[in-house]
């Protein structure tokens, strides 16, 4: 199956060429369906197998994505950076998107984000779970995410409603300037910070995140926020800067 160039576009619209970067770590049971869904829409999927120990790599190949395999596990930030570099190197995509492999994101949301970027001429379109009430989540998760967003928004040029959403779309130029230092989970804030510089035209798009039993079991444990905060603080003290 070819993932390059022209493919069927059931939506009827002419989607501009978009490379979807998908970090994959031991997601063999779900990743194939997620990729096939996107490939079916005419999108190029760059799946970064982050040293999975299950059959994720075979599933990725079978689903028709471009697979880039880390020899060892680097973490999600490391995988995103690799995926972005692969997208720039292996495709001529106009847009680069990030998408979770666990099936919590909807491909229709991504298509909507591409249209929004096209119509509004935005450099960056970020998914937000809080622009409408479609996403159901626990009160504790909501509280943590809202607090993280408030902290993030301080001193930032663009005010976001959701600072930790894995569904993002950027233009090729913006993608070429992404340079993530953290390989672990701290990349989420780091990436958002890079993408919301005042020189970019940034928009948010309401997305619907499905918290299934599967995605919940794979999600970040609350304690991991301590790791993230520690990484960020040590980095800021070490370099005397926000970036």
């Amino acid at each position: 199956m070819s993932t390059h160039g022209v493919s069927a576009q059931p939506l009827g619209g002419d989607l501009p060429e978009t490379a979807v970067v998908m970090p994959v770590y031991n997601e063999a049971t779900v990743v194939r369906g997620v990729i096939e869904d996107l490939v079916g829409l005419g999108l190029t999927v760059i799946a970064v197998d982050d040293g999975s120990s299950d059959s994720s790599a075979a599933e990725i190949d079978a689903a028709g994505a471009i697979r880039v395999s880390h020899p060892i596990n680097l973490g999600q930030g490391g995988a995103l950076q690799t995926g972005v570099e692969a997208a720039l190197r292996f495709t001529g995509a106009k847009y680069v998107a990030t998408f979770d492999a666990d099936g919590q994101h909807q491909s229709a949301d991504l298509v909507g984000m591409i249209s929004k970027a096209e119509e509004g001429g935005y450099d960056v379109v970020l998914g937000s779970r809080f622009l409408d009430g479609k996403t159901e989540m626990s009160g504790l998760r909501r509280l943590i995410l809202k607090t993280a967003t408030k902290v993030f928004n301080r001193g930032s040029a663009h005010k976001l409603t959701d600072a930790h959403n894995g569904l993002r779309l950027v233009t090729r130029d913006v993608a070429a300037r992404i340079n993530l230092v953290f390989a672990g989970m701290a990349h989420a804030s780091e990436l958002e910070q890079e993408l919301t510089q005042s020189i970019y035209r940034v928009a948010e798009y309401p997305v619907h995140v499905l918290y299934t039993e599967y995605s919940r079991s794979k999600g970040q444990p609350l304690l991991n926020s301590v790791n993230i905060l520690g990484d960020i603080l040590a980095h800021r003290v070490g370099t005397w800067s926000r970036a």
Partner: peptide, 9 residues
């Protein structure tokens, strides 16, 4: 690791 992965791909 990134360079190894990209070269292999």
């Amino acid at each position: 690791s990134r360079q190894v992965a990209l070269a292999e791909a």
